[in-house]
Amino acid sequence: MSGRVIVITSGKGGVGKTTTSANIGTALAKAGNKVVLIDTDIGLRNLDLLLGLENRIVYTIVDVVEGRCKLKQALVKDKKNPNLSLLAAAQTRDKSAVSEEQLKDICEKLKKDNDFILVDCPAGIEQGFQNAVAGASEAIVVTTPEMSAIRDADRIIGLLAAREEIESYKLLLNRVRPNLIATNDMMSVEDVVELLACDLIGIIPEDTGIISSTNKGDPIVNDEKSLAGQAYRNVARRIMGEEVEFLNLEEDKNFIGKIKDFFEKTIKEIKAKI
């Protein structure tokens, strides 16, 4: 088996890299793939919290590279899905505790028995980013429809494009609010894609459910009713090579919008009859 190593990065902080990692990882594992999530945000780890695995961590990636344990011992199995495991970052150290070669080595080893290795990258373009990207051959760039996030994503795409090892990079547009796009208060998906000139792999709508799911340590893909969960499941299917249409977020109209639609449709029908 030779797994795919995908780095999830953004440049800017707070756009949803870790949430995306946790959700895509969970969705891929739910679809039957063997998945390892690597948290490379040493010193500011969060991925364990989002997965609700903090209480199970005994060894971290730093213990692995410093030889205090074997790689296998440091992998924390997910509560719900045995296909998913986490290699946690150390909280008590910093980015310099791990080198690019060491991360590359870990990814190579994990490739042997896993379908997917998702690397959650820290914010920034320094050592942490360089480490996270080192072992990857694919990248997902997470951004939100805001100028600052797009500027940083552009910078990241430039850095990724300059690396030979990165065979493909895709854009994931997070926290999209269709009602704001409709009133021209938010950049549309098309605008972002045009600005960044990069293929899309997913559009995730803003979802308040993310807040409680993050606090509870239960990724939102586990919630069948959530639209954001659905969007993340679709991203996972696209990663697996399926053709999946993007969710039509416009459908998510408010009550008045629906009534308006209904009247317009009826009037059209009446006119057609006359």
Partner: peptide, 15 residues
Amino acid sequence: AIQLRIAGLYARRND
């Protein structure tokens, strides 16, 4: 504590 460890025994906080 998220984890309590005494000697070689580890306990984690219940989910």
